[in-house]
Amino acid sequence: MNRFARFIVLIFAIVSILVTPVLVQAQSTIDKPLENPVDETRALALHKLLRCLVCQNQSISDSNAELARDLRILVRQRIAAGDSDDETLAYIVDRYGDWVLLDPPVKSSTYVLWFGPVVIFLLALFGVFLFMRRSRIVPVATAASLNAEEEVKLKKLLDDTQEGNS
């Protein structure tokens, strides 16, 4: 190894000794955004999808808890290391389980959750359809006689209204 190379290695060693602990400290105490704005935007979006474990019902992007901050930093580190969004999420899910995902994945245990609203909507639509059909097929005669009584009542109410507003 020539002298120059040795010098470089020495410089590198000194720098890394000087820098490493400081970096660790900085990372562990404070939220430091990524230099690349595109990456930072990705990180911020992922933060919103991860649940804070300590505070239980906030995303890590909305929490002052220390673990939430550590996870924010971890997400930034994974992105800086070149992970895709999915890889970053998978990295955290591997450690904490699906529970940390605020957007629950579609799987057999969440079918009811994800398809439930569609079913509810269709049932509601069906209910309205039944109701509409029923309120239209009543024989005309009954409807008319009912309505006559109705009209009187309604008229009385409307008269009250007029009085009230005069």
């Binding site: 562990s28 474990l53 300590v54 550590d70 450690r95």
Partner: peptide, 14 residues
Amino acid sequence: DRNGRVGIDWGVYG
């Protein structure tokens, strides 16, 4: 585990 990184690998939350 000074910075809590290994803790995260173990899934520690409290």
